[in-house]
Amino acid sequence: MSEEIRYCNGTDQLDEVLLDNVDVHIEQLDTDCYWLCFTRHGDPTYGRLVVNIGPAGHVKRKTPLNGYITENDLGIKENR
């Protein structure tokens, strides 16, 4: 699989994240906010990809939640 971060048609609204060989940490930060951290399995550098998921603000799609990439230390290609 090709690793990639995809956004909804030219926006900052996250559509999907495709990753290989990662460990996942999901944590509820608040009643309406989640933090997802992806790290390479066995990578000693601790590089990570971090996604925050919370209530949608001003978005074009009618979704109750929206995801944002807050860190991309893994260098995953981002397509908008």
Rank of each mutant, 00 (worst) to 15 (best):
W35P: 00
V24P: 00
G57D: 08
G54S: 10
V59E: 11
D15A: 06
C37Q: 15
K60F: 11
R61Q: 05
D23V: 04
D73V: 05
D32F: 10
N52A: 00
L36S: 04
D73S: 07
G75P: 02
M1Q: 03
L65Y: 14
T11H: 00
N66A: 15
I76V: 15
P64T: 05
Y34V: 05
L19S: 03
S2T: 12
V51R: 05
S2M: 09
N21P: 00
K77P: 09
I53V: 15
T39E: 09
N79C: 11
L19M: 10
T31E: 04
I53L: 13
K77D: 05
A56C: 13
L29V: 10
G10R: 05
W35N: 12
K60I: 09
H58S: 14
L14G: 04
G54R: 09
N66F: 10
V17E: 09
T63D: 06
E78G: 15
G42M: 03
T31R: 10
D30V: 00
V50T: 03
N9Y: 01
Y7V: 02
H58E: 12
S2Y: 11
R61N: 08
K60Q: 14
L36H: 11
N66L: 10
I5V: 13
F38E: 01
E3Q: 15
D20A: 12
E3L: 03
N9R: 07
H41M: 00
Y68K: 12
E4M: 09
T45C: 03
V24C: 06
